[in-house]
Design a protein around this nucleic acid. Structure first.
Lengths: 187, 187
DNA sequence: CAGACCATGTAAAACGTTACATGATTCG
DNA sequence: CGAATCATGTAACGTTTTACATGGTCTG
């Protein structure tokens, strides 16, 4: 049971359609979960069958109709039970790290290229997170918002995501520069 | 195709049995990949069938016999092809982050407990990484080792893992303290 | 002598990814 | 008028997790 809870948590902030959730899982939640639309539609159908969410049809003239979902009391209870269950640290699975692990025995050139590309996308994600954080805290400074705000969960996970991407960026840049320097001095 | 390459990368540093690999995938490689023994035995069998690794039987008197595996030239070629394939960032899937995302709508107590536990295990992992890093660089200081060492891949991934766990620890501690403070002020 | 560690697997179930399928509207 | 966006799914395939299974040695 895994994606279930991520979906329930995402639906706490209001009604969403499968399509909208797919967007959310692509950006805001992407620091700790990712899912393709197909997976979300399947999970939403399952959650609705089990009564953890309810959907209502919204007829649209200009666009295809959609279904918006809300968490039920049963869904909230499920989330509470989940939060009370010990979680084990789930690992990162990063192809790029596997490549760097093996880089001494391979041609480093393609790895360097990928590191530099990743540094750029990580930097872009940091900026996205910064804008999301700003929007969430509004006028308040961070400290005040975290002390007094009434919806700080998404802010806190966003902070974690920001740090992660920042670290990612710094690491990628450092490793790329290092491998470049080594490649230019025949070993 | 995923675990394959992590296994091949792990086997670059010498011969390992399935059992030993399972240990490795539990600690050193755990910053970017984790696999249970069953998965490793299955993957090793598959890699051997495909000629990417070769195994040799080692008879032991005091213990059950074991098979040690080495990467073949074909295996190295497979790794090189992998390193030249664009990788997409694969996401973190953290139950604990899902819990924090939802924490405003739940009883925060069990989440706080888990955050504090996780902070402790993250701190322990930082120390493990520190010892691994020290062992790898030996007498040299980090800068010199990274400039001149001939097996820096594992060192670099270990650095990333260390940073990740350090960030994890700081975040968990901060969030736990914050939620505790908020819980004591009825809100 | 019980529990931990060494050592290797099979089988089933759950989960995730990719490909396929459809069809309307808006933007450039 | 082609591409992008909105909107929802099914089917096949591949990967991961969990449960089951076995049996020897070493440590307290």
């Amino acid at each position: 049971m895994a994606l279930r809870h991520a979906v329930l948590a995402a639906l706490l902030d209001g009604e969403y359609s499968g399509y909208q959730l797919a967007k959310t899982f692509d950006v805001s939640l992407s620091n700790f979960w990712y899912a393709v639309p197909q997976q979300l539609y399947a999970e939403l159908a399952k959650l609705e069958r089990e009564g953890l969410i309810v959907g209502r049809q919204v007829i649209q003239r200009d666009r295809p109709n959609k279904r918006l979902f809300t968490v039920t009391d049963a869904g909230l209870a499920e989330l509470a039970a989940f939060a009370a269950t010990p979680s084990k640290p789930s690992s990162i699975r990063e192809d790029l790290l596997v490549m760097v692990q093996a880089v001494d025995r391979l041609d480093p050139a393609p790895v360097i290229v990928q590191l530099e590309e990743r540094a750029v996308t990580a930097a872009a994600k940091v900026e996205i997170f910064d804008r999301m954080l700003q929007r969430m805290r509004g006028e308040l400074d961070e400290e005040t918002f975290l002390r007094e705000g009434d919806r700080i969960g998404p802010y806190l996970t966003c902070l974690r995501g920001r740090r992660f991407e920042q670290e990612n960026r710094e690491w990628c840049e450092r490793v790329a520069a290092l491998l470049r320097a080594r490649a230019s001095l025949p070993g």
